[in-house]
Design a protein around this nucleic acid. Structure first.
Lengths: 223, 223
DNA sequence: TAAAGTATTTTTGTATCCACGTATTATCAA
DNA sequence: TTGATAATACGTGGATACAAAAATACTTTA
């Protein structure tokens, strides 16, 4: 079974890895807010290690766009402007569109059932108000991407999901529009079933672009 | 004038930045070969700084996919398998396709002339055998991307160009197929002139995908 | 009150040290 | 010779203490 993204739950754990995971997790869950300053010393103490691995983790997080590193001014939690959020959704649309196109030929009946199972689980999470709707939603998209069998593509898409995750959570918490997401995603499955790769690609693109405006309202002005 | 990618030629230079630029440049030029081990001490001495900023630079380079960091085994120059190279070109095709689609409405006659100037400069570099044909080629693509006015999109595409740069150089050095690139790119400009965004997007996609197989022959087997 | 200068805090980088994993070499038995 | 095993060298990952530079905060003075 190909793993969906929230990737690499492996347990090798150098200190830097641990710091990276720890901070990333906090950011995904929205524990740190955009603009918050991350002080290496504090975080190091929190996890029980020295500054060095934490600072290294900062570099990676900055590469991921989760954090902004300004010379001599330390590490600040990144926030997205509305424009940036739209941009990410534009990028997601073509990337996940590509993933769908590539995945399509590999999807058999068994896989369709798995996708429908994931869709159902997502809906249940949505109804119960549990905010791991966001995680389920990622699993659904991640599953399709995984089927493309393109490691770098999967990685890039996954990284974008991490960046938007805090906003997805706010969106989910503040209103329950996500319920209508059921049909939205059912349409994607239907398109996959159609066997028309370019059609499915287009449907995925439209699906992703259509959610951007809804999210956009909840974006904090940021720096 | 919007800057083309080889981005950020700014001169703020923390030590980490310097290390990052230094190593990236060496990798782009192919001074280090895939599989080579990068020893922090050596590089630190080479640039005249301590290990720490070098180690931090490694993290970013690893995020960029230029280098592989394995726990307790240090830093090794990444190489691309044929599959990975194809994958990168697939990703480039949709990303740069998107950039073209977004850039199109902003291109005026002046900009077309600039693009033609860049194309000509690229050709001249190709004829003189100077290997900064690769740089000119990047400038051409970078210019179009810049017109999309999407910072994150530009950044991602730029990162991919950096990864494939060493292979582009090998390709260029070993044969002079790049000459035929003139028409290839002229077609892209023509498509931009057509005013049909989706057509131009498609043309750019095809252009990029068509170069992958030519490059693929020159890819080292890698790990 | 505004400007200038001083002090403090942070960030960044250096230098050193150590434990542990990996890789290499040397040793020894079959 | 060959293969397995032990000894060793090396590099990595990390800790810690310290120094320099920048940014921020705080006075003091005009």
């Amino acid at each position: 079974m190909p793993a969906a993204f929230p990737a690499e739950p492996q347990m090798s754990a150098t200190a830097e890895e641990e710091a990276y995971r720890h901070i990333q997790r906090a950011l995904r869950l929205g524990r740190y807010k955009p603009g918050d300053r991350l002080i290496p010393e504090e975080i190091a103490a929190e996890i029980g290690m020295s500054r060095m691995p934490v600072r290294e983790a900062f570099r990676r997080l900055a590469s991921d766009g989760l954090v902004v590193l300004r010379p001599n001014r330390g590490c600040v939690v990144a926030g997205l402007t509305v424009d940036e959020l739209y941009e990410i959704f534009e990028i997601r649309s073509v990337l996940e569109g590509l993933a769908v196109r590539l995945a399509m030929p590999r999807i058999d009946e068994e896989e369709f059932e798995e996708l429908e199972r994931l869709l159902e689980r997502m809906e249940r999470a949505g109804q119960s108000g549990s905010s791991d709707w966001v995680v389920r939603h990622q699993e659904f998209h991640g599953r399709i991407c995984a089927l493309s069998r393109r490691p770098k593509l999967i990685h890039q898409i996954s990284a974008l999901h991490v960046v938007i995750e805090p906003y997805m959570r706010i969106w989910f918490d503040d209103c329950d529009k996500p319920h209508s997401a059921r049909e939205e995603h059912a349409v994607v499955i239907a398109a996959l079933r159609s066997g028309d790769e370019l059609h499915a690609e287009k449907v995925m693109q439209d699906h992703i672009l259509s959610t951007a405006p809804m999210l956009a309202e909840f974006v904090s002005p940021s720096r």
